[in-house]
């Protein structure tokens, strides 16, 4: 028997409720907007790191272009989740759009690692329920945190460090999955250069451009080396 969607998502329930609450508290204590905007963002955006970054950007009244670029790049890893699920989501019909919308880190890892023994149609239905349950946990967490932060008075100075802590955690997780330190040095170095030469509002975009350029150059050099080897083989062979 395959475990039910609810049982599969239990670990995510315990992760999403508190993290959603952390976002809600952060939102309600750092910003002057109504607390229910926090769960609304959980419904519409549904991305943990992006929502937490949004609190900083909202507080700084960041320009909308910067917001778009920062959010796109922060979420760029989703691009690669999608690439690996192209086949799996084929034939999902009306559910497909929601399956794509709900593709968070945790949902992705659950959908790609769980055992599939039923028919394709049934498995896609389970995928759909898993995605829906996960978002439900997240929205409930955001609402609870937003309401708490709004109604319970406490000194929240410094709570914004949660964002940095989250980025550090995600960096370590990326490193564990990859087993290489090169991208970490590249990111850190790009950040250092951007902070040294650019004013604060352009540092994030500057660092992102540096990282992308270096990766592109590295790819081209790698590819040229491959073609050179191949053509040498043909001339000498």
């Amino acid at each position: 028997m395959t475990p039910s969607a609810f049982r599969l998502t239990l670990p995510i329930l315990f992760g999403y409720l508190p993290l959603g609450m952390a976002f809600g508290v952060l939102f309600a204590t750092q910003l002057d907007y109504p607390w229910w905007i926090a769960p609304l963002m959980g419904v519409l955006v549904y991305a943990g790191a992006a929502q937490i970054l949004a609190v900083s950007l909202l507080a700084a009244h960041a320009g909308l272009l910067e917001v778009f670029i920062a959010m796109f790049v922060l979420n760029a890893r989703h691009l690669f989740y999608g690439l690996s699920l192209l086949g799996q989501f084929r034939g999902a019909g009306w559910r497909k759009l929601y399956l794509i919308f709900g593709l968070t880190d945790e949902t992705y890892s659950l959908l790609t690692s769980r055992q599939r023994t039923e028919t394709r149609e049934q498995e896609l239905h389970t995928d759909f329920r898993i995605t829906l349950l996960n978002q439900l946990y997240w929205v409930v967490g955001c609402a609870a945190g937003g309401f708490l932060g709004h109604s319970v008075a406490f000194n929240s100075t410094g709570i914004e460090f949660a964002l940095i802590a989250l980025f550090i955690v995600l960096t370590i997780e990326q490193y564990k999955a990859l087993g290489e330190t090169f991208p970490l040095w590249l990111g850190a170095l790009a950040a250092g250069v951007a902070m040294a030469v650019l004013p604060a509002p352009h540092q994030l975009i500057g660092a992102i451009v540096i990282v992308s350029l270096v990766l592109l150059l590295q790819y081209r050099r790698h590819r040229d080396a491959l073609t050179r080897n191949r053509s040498e083989e043909t001339t000498h062979g």
């Binding site: 690669f80 914004e160 960096t171 490193y175 991208p183 850190a188 250092g192 540092q203």
Partner: peptide, 25 residues
């Protein structure tokens, strides 16, 4: 190219976000 970016971009972006915001805090 997509494989190359998929391999390195997410980790590099996380690291740069951590550093930029750590410096600001």
């Amino acid at each position: 190219l997509i494989k190359h970016l998929g391999r390195y971009l997410p980790a590099a972006v996380m690291a740069l976000l951590a550093i930029v915001f750590l410096q600001r805090s």
